[in-house]
């Protein structure tokens, strides 16, 4: 009890003080600043930790080993293994792109439908459905993919069914709600004058959506795609269940391969020494990849903005 009344007393005193200097908004500012800096410091700490843990892999195994295409860790003599992560880098980029190709058009499309086309009741029903998808745990989606999707792809393509195609479809389902919900928010935030002006100038509904509303909401939609991508690039569980976790470098959609995140989950169980460090190095590369992708999307969209205007 003593330890509890301590902080609350402190808060009260601090508040009295703030009131007395008549800056009532200040404590909110400070609180929000603390929130923001916790996020930033947390990110920084994660980066430092991952970097520190992966350092032994870089110094003792060397870049040629880490960036080869051969992954064959040695559990009892970690230093003698091969830790080439290139197949998984390719797999990560491939599946993330695939997931966005599936999820982004569906997500943005359903946002436009709910906001502009659907009657309110149907729009609400679809919106609730999308929210439900967002709350399905990734293991459940992965299990669904393993037992239904993979055999189906296997039958259609006459392969094992495991691979980038299955992973992309699973990721598409997972990024869909994020992209749809955020796109919908940015569409709803648009002033109604935009739409009224477009109609007033004789634009059709499709022209209004395509030429006026989407460009106006572009920033929000972009953030939606970036957050969706963040979910896709780091998803480990669902991807691991449907991608096959093979160690080969492949560009085929239906060959088994792996992603960085899935490989970390698969191998972290009994890893030790530089093997463990090599997994952290994969995590570091994954972080860097994610940041590069976000940067690229931002750059590409900036160029578009200039050409449009």
């Amino acid at each position: 009890m003593l330890s509890i009344s301590g902080p609350s007393l402190f808060i009260k005193q601090a508040m009295d003080y703030l009131r007395s200097i008549r800056k009532r908004e200040l404590h909110i500012k400070v609180l929000l600043m603390i929130c923001a800096s916790v996020t930033f410091v947390g990110l920084l700490l994660i980066f430092i930790f991952v970097f520190r843990e992966s350092l032994p892999a870089f110094t003792r195994l060397g870049l040629p080993n880490l960036f080869s295409t051969h992954w064959n860790p040695d559990v009892s003599h970690p230093e003698a293994g091969n830790y080439g992560m290139l197949p998984f880098v390719v797999g990560t980029l491939y599946t993330t792109l695939g997931g966005l190709l599936v999820g982004a058009p569906l997500g943005i499309g359903s946002a436009i439908f709910i906001d502009q086309i659907a009657p309110p009741k149907i729009g609400t029903a679809i919106g609730r459905g999308i929210e439900l998808i967002a709350s399905i745990p990734s293991v459940v989606i992965g299990w669904f993919g393993l037992t239904l999707l993979v055999p189906m792809i296997g039958r259609l393509t006459d392969t094992s069914g495991f691979g980038i195609l299955a992973a992309s479809l699973v990721l598409g389902v997972m990024v869909l709600p994020t992209i749809a919900a955020l796109s919908l928010e940015s569409l709803r935030a648009l002033p109604s004058e935009l739409k009224e002006a477009a109609y007033g100038m004789g634009a059709t509904r499709w022209q209004t959506i395509y030429k006026v509303l989407l460009p106006a909401a572009r920033r929000g939609v972009l953030v939606a795609v970036i957050l969706g991508m963040g979910r896709a690039i780091g998803e480990a569980m669902a991807v691991q269940m449907v991608i096959g976790n093979s160690r080969q470098l492949t560009f085929s959609l239906t060959n088994g391969t792996s992603t960085l995140a899935a490989r970390i989950v698969t191998d972290m169980g009994e890893s030790s020494g530089v093997f463990r460090s090599a997994l952290f190095a994969q995590g570091l590369i994954l972080l860097i990849l994610a940041m590069l992708l976000i940067l690229t999307i931002r750059l590409v969209s900036r160029e578009k903005k200039e050409t449009v205007r």
């Binding site: 393993l146 094992s160 269940m241 093979s246």
Partner: peptide, 25 residues
């Protein structure tokens, strides 16, 4: 070294599920 194209499973249960649902496995 096992073949690079082999599908890798994390547990006995997932291995059984995978072999049961993958033809010619």
């Amino acid at each position: 070294d096992p073949t690079g194209s082999a599908i890798e499973c994390n547990s006995n249960g997932i291995m059984r599920e995978t072999v049961a649902s993958t033809k010619n496995s």
